[in-house]
Amino acid sequence: MERRTYLRSLGVGSLAGIAGCLGDDLSPLGSDDSQTILDPPAEPRGDPSHPVHGEAFPSFSLQDPLAGETVSLDDFVGEKPFLMTYFFTACPDGACPALLLRLRRVQEDAAERGYEDDIALLAATFDPERDTPDVLEQYAAEQGVDLDAGNWNFLRPETDEEARDVINDEFGMRYERVDDPDDLDGDDASLDGGEGGHEDSTDHNDSDDGHDSDDGHDSDDSDDGHDDHDSDDDHDDHDSDDDHDDHDHGEYTFSHFNLVMLVNRDGIVERAYPSAVSDRDAVSIDTIVEDTRTVVTD
């Protein structure tokens, strides 16, 4: 599908979801609060593409190439809660390190407080093409992840197609590959995941002046600073999925949600922290650590 059409349809779809979603209270339709430890979140989430508070996390089975093991939802249901986030190593603006930082802080807190065996930290890449096992290993060291604690898994879909099927479709963690960063402008590139106001995406684009670090970049100027990174080949084809022939593999980027999921040991979502790198208490490191402690010790 044409990328621009796809992106617009994501926006429309989520708006339609909002229209049908005003329930009697703040809980999203379909949530079952009896299965959660935490109360519903203060920020109403509407009906985004991914599961939210009270909903079941979809089953999955992904490889961790560093640990050399398959990691599945079944490993955790009945066993322990987990935190999951989604990144790519070529992230231009610190959003992905900021997401990983949240999981790392929980990892540190768990070690300090003795619950390191009762929580799992899962970091899934949606860019397996560049994020090879070697790259992930280097990235883990750069990011200060403790791989010896035994509670951290990097998850790597084997192919771009598997990444799309599992992360974008199954998890509803929307991301879109952008082959020509100059194509990004505010309207087209926004991935509005739902009402609640905060499901911003990181466009890895820029804005007029001193722009908001709320995932960075909500505006619509094209980015002069990326001129150097454009491949000089023609950009007539905007189909981002399968044309790698004329483009240097290192020069594409992604629009993506900045999402952290907290799932309890019944496999039910406690929190789907939206725009999780922006400067709001609801997604601060302290909040995520406290929520995790509550869910672990329940």
């Binding site: 930082l101 908001d212 670090s213």
Partner: peptide, 17 residues
């Protein structure tokens, strides 16, 4: 290079720069 975004997390004053 604030690779781990730790300084950014601590000191960013709402936007860039």
């Amino acid at each position: 290079l604030d690779r781990r975004a730790e300084l950014t997390e601590r000191y960013l004053a709402g936007g860039y720069p």
